[in-house]
Amino acid sequence: MEPPDDKTVRFQINGRSHEGTRGESLLAAIRRHGYEVPSLCYHEAVSPYGACRLCLVEVKRGRRQKLTTSCNYPLQEGIEVFLDTDRVVRHRRTILQLLLAMAPEAEELRSLAAEYGVEDTPFVTDEEHADNACILCGLCNRVCNEVVGAHAIAFAGRGLHKRMESPYDDVAEACIGCGACVFVCPTSCIGIEETEQMRRILKWHRDLPMQKCAACGRPFAPTFQIMHFADKIGVERSHFDRCPDCR
């Protein structure tokens, strides 16, 4: 084994010793070592946000042992992590009930809740937004900002009225229609439709015409998206005249 440099830290998961990098996401370290911790709002490609609260673990540091979200906990030397204590499981159940109250119909959430024996929620469900399964995890927003760089959407309002939407809940002019938000959304609440001519991102009211491949004639991506990517990586637009298969 290589000698540990100052970036390498030793810590324990459920009483077993492991190594990781100082400051990395505790959740990422836990998963890398093969343990399972549920989460909805975490994605390794973007910064952690700690919104869904499901990645809760107990961390013992010195004499103090506390509950914390692991996704945004920076890994430190000598901490002891406990993944499935009674306390963790009890709180996770409550969190699942709260999330179910926000999105009672979301399949992904229901099946995760079922794993914890949670079938129903004692909390008041939001009747007004019953058709909207958004749990305000902000993952779509972070992907749009940090990975795509389109900055098309953001949280609006605050408290009970907080929601994820395009400016003025109108057509998201900055949306390039890449569909990354649709891909990462943990409750599949954004919605995408695609025809030969058009790709629609339903929640952001964005309709974008599709680019057809100059060689095979197959539509492969929205024209607007291709322009965005060509500018971003600094290649000629003509590079994208053909689909990836014909290029």
Binding site: H151, A152, A154, A156, G157, S166, P167, A172
Partner: peptide
């Protein structure tokens, strides 16, 4: 500054009106 960010701020504070 992206429009989405401005809209986010403008709706967050009750001192602002759209």
């Amino acid at each position: 500054v992206p429009m989405s960010r401005i809209y986010s701020l403008a709706t967050f504070f009750s001192a602002f009106s759209l």
